[in-house]
């Protein structure tokens, strides 16, 4: 069962990623990316992380991608990218292709040498449930949690400062 779900979610997620990159319209790219994120939530669910899976749908699909679609709507730019200038100039393509191919070759060699690694053992009781994650978030990782809240605060202030005209800002 886990095997079938993994191959299903994994294949669909890679498909979603490739379609995101190859589509001409930014809106269709965004919809394919949403599809890929929903598949990622499935992957998290298979990996005994139900809370992370739910947050993936809520935060990524529900908030971030809606923000993207909203901005695409607001910009009212051309619906399709210019076909001639949509992609990088052709002479630069080998330089783009070398790093991914090199990484794939390295990963393939690594797997051939060391073999696959199993997960082994079972997970503790309540692993990945909201209660377990909350206990870590507000216990062992409290400092990181507080720091991330500062990151979000700075992001809010920064977005406000960029979006507003300079003379209308409260500290001017």
């Amino acid at each position: 069962m886990e095997t079938i779900l993994f191959w299903l979610c994994g294949a669909l997620m890679v498909l979603g990623g490739v379609m995101t990159v190859t589509q001409r319209s930014a809106v269709i790219s965004a919809v394919w990316l949403i599809f890929a994120f929903v598949c990622a939530a499935g992957i998290f669910a298979i990996l005994d992380a139900p809370f992370v899976a739910i947050m993936q749908v809520l935060v990524y699909v529900g908030a971030i991608m809606v923000l993207f679609l909203f901005v695409i709507m607001m910009l009212q730019g051309p619906v399709l990218d210019n076909e001639k200038r949509r992609l990088l100039k052709l002479p630069l393509w080998p330089a783009v292709a070398i790093p991914p191919v090199a990484v794939l070759v390295l990963v393939g060699g690594w797997i051939r040498r060391t073999g696959t690694r199993d997960f082994g053992g079972t997970v503790p009781e309540g692993f990945g449930q909201p209660a377990a994650v909350a206990e870590l978030l507000l216990g062992r990782y409290l400092l990181a949690f507080e720091l991330v809240s500062i990151v979000l605060l700075v992001a809010i202030v920064g977005a406000l400062a960029i979006g507003k005209e300079a003379r209308k800002l409260p500290w001017k």
Binding site: F51, V52, M55, P124, Y141, F145, V148, A155, A159
Partner: peptide, 22 residues
């Protein structure tokens, strides 16, 4: 078998949201 990774995924969500907003 350690939930630390889940916590850092949540941190990553916050970073992604901040990045998208900015």
């Amino acid at each position: 078998g350690d939930g630390g990774g889940h916590v850092f995924v949540l941190m990553n969500f916050a970073v992604a949201a901040a990045e998208a907003a900015i």
